[in-house]
């Protein structure tokens, strides 16, 4: 087999991380973000961080850990660290079946209850909103549900994410083709305008959503989120260990108004995490209703 590449080309490009360094870094990340990194991903870490270490002019992971803990710029480094440990792929209307379950079995019920109580108010919390596709999808869903009634309502969707870059991107509200892979053309034309960079979400959708950088491991800032009727937290807790899952779900419980709902991602469940919610099984999705 001939090759266009040198027969002695090496695979290692990165600084080596020792087992001790890995554990230190992992504990640091866990302490700051609640994200748990399995030891199996050690090499993935090496390669992901290696370029960044070079940019900082550091030659070992020990130096990087010192930098994170003691450097004058450590506060600036934290968001960068978070970027490196999170992934942010999503799209509009991801998991259509769940959204359908949500609309029919959760949203309509809550809207009706609010109407009955004469309080045309709705708070939704989108926790781990990435680049904004989920909260905007929810805002569009509300436009579609309430139609002309919408101006009478006071609606606030609080959308938070660990990554500052993602929040900035979400605030811009401009998306490429890939984000629309499961969205109908009608919806796209109705709620987005074509710009040179992509499709920009229209102001009437954007004004329902308030973005904010937030660390779900920071209980104090979670307490400042307005109490919600619904919490969406999809494909986030999958990165947490059991203790952190319990902690975050506990915060959602405290934040939810009586009878409020928690929606998780398709591959996530409260099984073994919390019994304070009643799971309502629908074809394709589970909605968790706050008890007590």
């Amino acid at each position: 087999m001939g090759s266009l590449f040198s027969s002695s080309i090496s695979l290692r490009k990165s600084v080596r991380i020792s087992d001790d360094e890995f554990l230190l870094l992992r504990d640091f990340i866990y302490e700051k973000s609640g994200i748990f990194v399995d030891v199996k991903r050690k090499y993935l870490f090496e390669s992901r961080f290696s370029k960044h270490l070079g940019e900082l002019g550091l030659s070992s992971f020990s130096d990087y850990i010192k930098y994170l803990k003691f450097d004058v710029k450590k506060a600036e480094e934290l968001p960068r660290l978070f970027e490196l440990v999170t992934t942010n792929e999503t799209s509009f209307c991801r998991d259509l079946r769940q959204l359908d379950v949500f609309k029919v079995n959760v949203l309509d019920e809550i809207l009706n209850e609010q109407r009955k109580a004469g309080k045309l108010e709705l708070n939704i919390w989108s926790a781990g909103c990435s680049s904004g596709e989920e909260p905007y999808t929810l805002a569009i869903l509300l436009h579609e549900s309430l139609k002309r009634e919408l101006p009478l309502w006071k609606i606030k969707i609080t959308a938070v994410d660990l990554s500052r870059t993602m929040i900035e991107q979400a605030q811009k509200g401009v998306y490429g083709e890939y984000a629309f892979k499961t969205t109908s053309d009608d919806i796209r034309k109705k709620y987005f305008t074509k710009e040179s960079e992509g499709w920009k979400v229209k102001p009437e959708v954007q004004k329902l959503v308030h973005f904010q950088q937030m660390n779900l491991n920071d209980s104090q800032s979670l307490k400042k989120v307005a109490r919600s009727h619904i919490v969406f937290c999809r494909n986030v807790v999958i990165y947490f260990d059991e203790a952190m899952k319990k902690k975050v779900v506990g915060s959602f419980y405290d934040n939810l108004l009586p009878g409020g709902y928690l929606m998780l991602g398709h591959s996530e469940t409260l099984h073994k995490i919390s019994q304070a919610f009643k799971p309502l099984y629908h074809p394709g999705s589970i909605a968790y209703k706050k008890q007590g």
Binding site: L4, S7, I9, S10, S14, Y43, L44, S47
Partner: peptide, 20 residues
């Protein structure tokens, strides 16, 4: 090859094979 040990003998050889 991001996930695997970059110093492992068979892995490095597989990398070279893939490149070729």
């Amino acid at each position: 090859f991001l996930y695997v040990n970059p110093d492992s003998e068979p892995v490095v050889e597989m990398f070279r094979i893939s490149l070729a």
